[in-house]
Amino acid sequence: MSTLQEFSSDASIAEAAILSRPQPAPAQSITKGVKNVVLVHGAFADGSSWAKVIPLLHAKGLNVIAVQNPLTSLEDDVAATKRAIALMDGPVLLVGHSYGGMVITEAGNDPEVAGLLYVCALIPNDQQSVGDVVSAFPQAPGSAEFKQDASGFLSLSLKGINSYFAQDLPEEERKVIFATQVPWAAVATTRKITNAAWKIKPSWAIIGTEDYMVTPDLARAEAKMIKAKTLELTSSHVPMVSQPNKVADFIISATQAL
């Protein structure tokens, strides 16, 4: 055998040996789940309503932004949420509490949104407003405590906070929620979404069994409508404040499933 033939034969043997070794998987198959979470607060609140959940998500290596919705109109709140989505690098799990469910159902049509998670939320269908969503069920007790000012903004009475909104929190926390609440433009309750993103995105829902703002009957009907993976908690309207560990765990499980 010539030297050239020997070299060719040895090279072929080496190449076969290399190809027979286990090869590392492509990077995309190693990475599992979504790493970005955008949290959207509801009426009378701001981004700090997620303050107990955010560190728990960070501890799992998730990137988190809590939107500061102006609560001046549905359109303004959707725009604020879409700006937060744009700040993330890659796909997003969009999480909405209460009225924030209206916001994420519209903003969730953004192509970067991989899934939706609703927390004690209002969930509209196509072309529905807040009023449309709640009209099929008896009025929630907490809604009787809405107070409208001369400028057309709603706030929640101290009785509303104590009895219907956050009744499972310590008294001092309830006082802070009352003192820091953000007025909600009444016009936001009349504006309709366009197309419901849950029709094309996987969805999850947390239901508070002692929620007197979005009642359990309404929340269960919504979850059934959107075919959501559902978690029921014995909580008020604000489980992310009263039971942050359980809410964070559910969010984390959703990110891992996407």
Score class of each variant (00 low, 15 high):
residue 123 I to N: 01
residue 123 I to W: 04
residue 124 P to Q: 08
residue 126 D to W: 08
residue 126 D to R: 01
residue 127 Q to F: 09
residue 127 Q to T: 00
residue 135 S to M: 05
residue 137 F to R: 04
residue 137 F to A: 03
residue 138 P to I: 09
residue 139 Q to D: 03
residue 141 P to M: 00
residue 142 G to N: 09
residue 143 S to M: 14
residue 143 S to E: 14
residue 144 A to H: 15
residue 144 A to D: 15
residue 145 E to L: 09
residue 145 E to P: 13
residue 146 F to K: 08
residue 147 K to M: 14
residue 147 K to F: 15
residue 147 K to T: 15
residue 148 Q to T: 13
residue 149 D to Y: 09
residue 149 D to I: 04
residue 150 A to N: 05
residue 152 G to F: 13
residue 154 L to G: 10
residue 155 S to Q: 04
residue 155 S to W: 12
residue 156 L to Q: 09
residue 157 S to Q: 11
residue 160 G to Q: 08
residue 161 I to V: 15
residue 162 N to F: 00
residue 163 S to F: 13
residue 165 F to T: 03
residue 165 F to W: 08
residue 166 A to C: 12
residue 166 A to E: 03
residue 167 Q to W: 07
residue 168 D to S: 11
residue 168 D to L: 06
residue 168 D to N: 09
residue 169 L to F: 14
residue 169 L to K: 13
residue 172 E to D: 15
residue 173 E to Q: 13
residue 175 K to E: 15
residue 175 K to S: 15
residue 176 V to T: 13
residue 177 I to K: 04
residue 182 V to P: 07
residue 187 V to A: 02
residue 187 V to F: 03
residue 188 A to W: 13
residue 189 T to C: 07
residue 189 T to V: 12
residue 190 T to D: 06
residue 192 K to P: 01
residue 193 I to K: 04
residue 197 A to Q: 03
residue 197 A to R: 04
residue 200 I to P: 08
residue 200 I to Y: 02
residue 201 K to I: 14
residue 203 S to Y: 05
residue 204 W to K: 11
residue 204 W to F: 11
residue 205 A to N: 11
residue 208 G to Y: 09
residue 209 T to R: 03
residue 209 T to Q: 01
residue 212 Y to E: 07
residue 216 P to L: 08
residue 217 D to I: 05
residue 217 D to Y: 11
residue 219 A to M: 00
residue 221 A to S: 15
residue 225 M to K: 02
residue 227 K to E: 07
residue 229 K to W: 08
residue 233 L to H: 04
residue 235 S to W: 02
residue 238 V to E: 09
